[in-house]
């Protein structure tokens, strides 16, 4: 896996670029078109939790974590992820073992159609990694790039705050 510094030069061969990306902890080699966006490359590789919404940087459904920071995968070339660490929603939990943030969102009823939820969960993950005890204002500000057409955002904010409380408790403590 190349280090972030000194990622060198990628050249197009037979219309494709060979990139190497750490996705959810695994080194993944991908062939991508030179103008292909990371969103499309990830979905083609099977990471369908990365949603294609507006495809223009407005809705936040294509959120990934790039080196642990939220990023819009529709606004960057796939090649820009070369040598970097990408986390998608598939890297957080599974249906049987959801991540505490996913569980909290489910518990408060934050999920309606669910299309925006992967992005919101990832943004919440980045927020709580940086600030384990955010107030409601901080949560709302962190989620201000993720649009939801079903809800009034109240439940997602509740979910994020619940997840923060649960993650702050020591392991084994009563919820």
């Amino acid at each position: 896996m190349p280090q972030k510094k000194g990622r060198g030069t990628l050249r197009v061969v037979d219309g494709k670029l060979d990139i190497l990306v750490n996705i959810n902890g695994k080194a993944v080699a991908m062939k991508v078109a030179p103008g292909e966006y990371l969103l499309d490359a990830l979905r083609r590789e099977g990471y369908k939790g990365v949603k294609k919404g507006c495809d223009g940087g407005d809705c936040g459904t294509c959120t990934i974590l790039l080196d642990d920071k939220p990023a819009l995968s529709c606004m960057m070339f796939a090649a820009q992820a070369h040598g970097r660490r990408v986390t998608t929603i598939e890297g957080l939990g599974t249906p049987n073992q959801p991540h505490p943030i996913q569980q909290a969102f489910a518990d408060v009823g934050a999920v309606q159609c669910g299309f925006c939820i992967p992005g919101m969960v990832l943004v919440t993950k980045a927020l709580l990694d940086e600030d384990p005890d955010p107030d409601e204002g901080a949560v709302r500000r962190a989620l201000d790039g993720n649009l939801c057409r079903c809800t009034g955002y109240v439940k997602q904010v509740e979910g994020a705050l619940l997840a923060a409380r649960r993650l702050r408790k020591p392991q084994g403590a009563k919820k």
Binding site: K5, G6, R7, G8, T9, L10, R11, V12, L17, P34, G35, F77, A79, Q80, H82, G83
Partner: peptide, 8 residues
Amino acid sequence: IRQFCFPA
């Protein structure tokens, strides 16, 4: 696009 460069 023919290449991506990542200067250090």
